[in-house]
Design a protein around this nucleic acid. Structure first.
Lengths: 221, 221
DNA sequence: CCGAATACGTGAAAGTTATCACATAAATAC
DNA sequence: GTATTTATGTGATAACTTTCACGTATTCGG
């Protein structure tokens, strides 16, 4: 499947909501293309593949488009997740207000350190680690955010998998992955967010644009 | 150019350091491929394109490989960045210990709120916003991490650009981008990290594997 | 009611990236 | 010293994505 298409869909979705609040009713492939940074043909093709049809001249109706994307993106169901590891990053995510606007709800946080469980005015409960399995099963959570220290990552990953978590957002520098080949059993979705890696990437790109030796090597001698 | 190659290089680089600390001296394309999750041929081709040669049977010498990647990834120069916006996420990043091991140094943080500037035992100084330009110019910083609220993102982006920042790591949900076409003047590198988007992506993928209607639409009727 | 303009829908072409497969060199075994 | 094994190096191939380009339906003007 078109790997980046899902990402584009979520971006369209956001733009559409913003356009809607501005009072617009229709949107053209060119508008969405500009906003997301892709060619208009990509937008049309994306929708075409999803059997989303516009009007031959009037573009796409924002309201309908949002409804369709709601269904495709799974927004009609509750989108709940837990955060495991309430250190710096975990705590910051728990208090991040951006999730709510996207319909994502952090159901709870977990940490080995009971001190953080006593947290001041945090609206989301933080439980000790031994309640992890019970909570996830009772609440039927399927997505987990891993913000534990590096050395604990695979252990937490396995615990979460064992209790039915199937979607992972991993902030540890360890690249989590499933060993068995895709297609066997229920699929596991893992996204690794590695901030240091992103920064390195940026430094590299800056470096390459200034270093003609390397540039020559890469962009054709 | 091979878009994902840079990302792979940084991943190789990490693995290599870990293998080195374990006492290994050589590594095979298959090792790196397994660790990074790609085919061994990709690894060989990556190195081949960079004119990095191994031994015909003995694999690659880790020490040499690291040295080569050091140069290619720009690790021989100091990798310094500033953080603009010291809220939840910004503060968490400032105290993140993972940067140091990758040779990245956060030179300073900036915030409109003087209160956070009085921060307790934070090893990195936090300055008020009006010192932004002076500091960046004096210290010759070229990479900025934007962790301000959404509505301030483009303003900060422009200020940073004006003062010579050329690499951006953007954590606001606004997708920053340069208007003028690539190739004009010094290139600007922007990486957008959108955590909510990543989560949405996961929910979508989980959804699609359970929703046969949509699956059928996408994976061939 | 007809022609011009517009923007979608989509098959085909172009471009890009990953995979395969085999020649090649080095080390090991006998 | 020769045969065998191993893992690289790379041209060719395959798979995938994006872009192009043109047919088509719809709206608007007169």
């Amino acid at each position: 499947m078109h790997k980046d298409m899902i990402l584009r869909l979520t971006k369209y979705y956001r733009i559409l909501h913003k356009l809607k609040t501005l009072g617009l009713e229709r949107v053209f492939a060119n508008n969405l293309g500009d906003a997301v940074g892709v060619n208009a043909a990509v937008v049309r093709k994306d929708f075409s593949l999803l059997n989303i049809m516009g009007q031959k001249r009037g573009g796409y109706e924002i309201e309908n488009l949002i409804t369709d994307l709601d269904k495709i993106l799974g927004k009609d169901k509750p989108q709940r997740a837990v955060i495991v590891g309430c250190g710096r990053i975990g705590s910051a995510l728990m208090r991040y207000s951006g999730f709510a606007v996207d319909g994502i709800h952090i159901a709870a946080g977990f940490d080995i350190n009971p001190a953080v469980c006593e947290d001041q005015h945090c609206p989301i409960p933080i439980y000790p680690m031994d309640e992890l399995e019970r909570f996830i099963q009772e609440e039927q959570i399927r997505v987990g955010i891993i913000t534990v220290p590096e050395q604990a990552s695979t252990e937490i990953f396995n615990r979460l998998r064992a209790v039915g978590i199937r979607g992972f957002l991993n902030f540890t520098p360890i690249e989590l992955k499933v060993s068995r080949p895709a297609g066997t059993g229920a699929p596991i979705i893992i996204h690794n967010v590695n901030i240091a890696l992103e920064l390195e990437h940026i430094f590299y790109e800056l470096n390459i644009t200034e270093n003609s030796e390397i540039t020559a090597q890469l962009y054709g001698s």
